[in-house]
Design a protein around this nucleic acid. Structure first.
Lengths: 88, 88
DNA sequence: TTTATATTTAGATATTTATCTAACTGTCTA
DNA sequence: TAGACAGTTAGATAAATATCTAAATATAAA
């Protein structure tokens, strides 16, 4: 929702790795968790932060919740960074 | 030096605003500080974090220290983000 | 309808961090 | 050379955050 939320979300290594995992398509929470040595509660916390930053979206499929990468906000960040790196 | 350092540095609003100020050329610490309502010590702390992330570099000119934007790391961040947003 | 599985929420804790004041270092100038 | 100015460093504190275990919720399966 804001640059603040986005950069805060991206400032954690685990969360960046989650985004990388989702690069190739949606994954359930369990599938994501299999890549990390953290508790389910901690993973859920990270997913909440990524979701609030609109970097991922979720959809429920029966017993599972699938998370999917949302590139819109990332595109916005690129625009912000380019406004710094490109000539006036 | 690492994505971690870079994203951590970018996760603070004051630090992002400092980078925006430096977009149009180097500024002394005092000139930067004039734009914020924070103590010199706090500003110095933010500059240290930006410098450690290699987002800025400094050069001493007599009594003053000038800080300058360093775009290399920002270009790296764009590459990282694009690796997420672009097709495989 | 129990029981098992998937995920989140609640509550606690230890670490990190942004901030301040005060003290210090370096440089210029009167 | 003494004082003023520019900036950093030291030490303290309050707020934010990443993590955990335990409990709660929701769905599927037996």
């Amino acid at each position: 929702m804001s640059y603040q939320d986005t950069f805060k979300a991206l400032s954690d290594k685990t969360r960046r790795e989650i985004l990388t995992l989702l690069r190739d398509g949606p994954l359930s929470v369990g599938e994501i968790g299999a890549h990390f040595d953290i508790s389910g509660a901690t993973l859920s916390h990270h997913l909440t932060i990524l979701r609030q930053a609109d970097l991922i979206s979720d959809s429920k499929k029966g017993k599972f919740i699938y998370y999917e990468l949302n590139t819109t906000v990332l595109d916005d960040i690129i625009v912000w960074i380019k406004s710094l790196t490109e000539e006036a």
